[in-house]
């Protein structure tokens, strides 16, 4: 419990002191426009749109982890996956999006958890197209899945992430499922003996 409150204090402090702020509506409208444009480009093939968003997020995550480590100044490995989850929710999301998703629904083996977003800053103003398919197929904030996947991969964790509910679709909550696949072992280059 103490690590959780420590993480939230850390996130709070970094957010207040070390983060440059940008107008939230600028972010919302920019992201919304990107999604709408991708939908247009792929002719409303929402499965493909989800994939593209995830890929964009993955590429962001690969780099964002560096920023995260520099700002959070925690050059220390998390001792277990539970601690990782705390840091993602209370520091990572806090400093980049100023939200703190709730961590719930752990499985018994501590390898799977849910992030429940009370508010989703990417989805303000958004209403999904009423073409009868977007409500069932499009994960509007799917970029976040990619970001997490990319960022964690750079710190030797292979994870699988996906949304399982979204308020935009009329669900009660926005929930992302994160599953630890494996810790990636440091592999020595083949020439080195």
């Amino acid at each position: 419990m103490s690590s959780a409150s420590k993480a939230s204090r850390l996130g709070e402090e970094i957010w207040k002191t070390r983060i440059e702020k940008v107008n939230a509506e600028l972010v919302v409208l920019t992201y919304g426009t990107i999604v709408a444009q991708i939908c247009k480009d792929f002719e409303n093939d929402y499965a493909e749109v989800n994939k593209q968003l995830d890929r964009m997020g993955y590429n962001i995550g690969l780099r964002l982890i560096e920023d995260y480590l520099a700002k959070s100044n925690t050059m220390r490995r998390c001792s277990n996956f539970r601690e990782t989850a705390e840091m993602i929710a209370k520091v990572g999301f806090k400093i980049f999006l100023n939200v703190t998703p709730t961590i719930t629904n752990w499985t018994g083996d501590n390898k799977q958890f849910s992030l429940v977003f009370d508010e989703n800053p990417l989805a303000d103003f958004v209403e999904l197209p009423d073409d009868g398919r977007a409500q069932d197929q499009l994960w509007f904030s799917n970029i976040l899945c990619g970001v997490l996947r990319g960022a964690l991969e750079m710190v030797q964790m292979q994870v699988e992430t996906h949304f399982i509910s979204d308020v935009l679709r009329g669900h009660d909550t926005t929930e992302m499922r994160v599953t630890l696949v494996r810790y990636i072992d440091d592999e020595l280059p083949p020439e080195d003996d």
């Binding site: 919302v28 409208l29 992201y31 919304g32 426009t33 999604v35 709408a36 939908c39 303000d124 103003f125 958004v126 209403e127 999904l128 197209p129």
Partner: peptide, 9 residues
């Protein structure tokens, strides 16, 4: 204004 801020509008 809120309605037209939706990116799909």
């Amino acid at each position: 204004v809120k309605a037209i801020m939706s990116p799909f509008y």
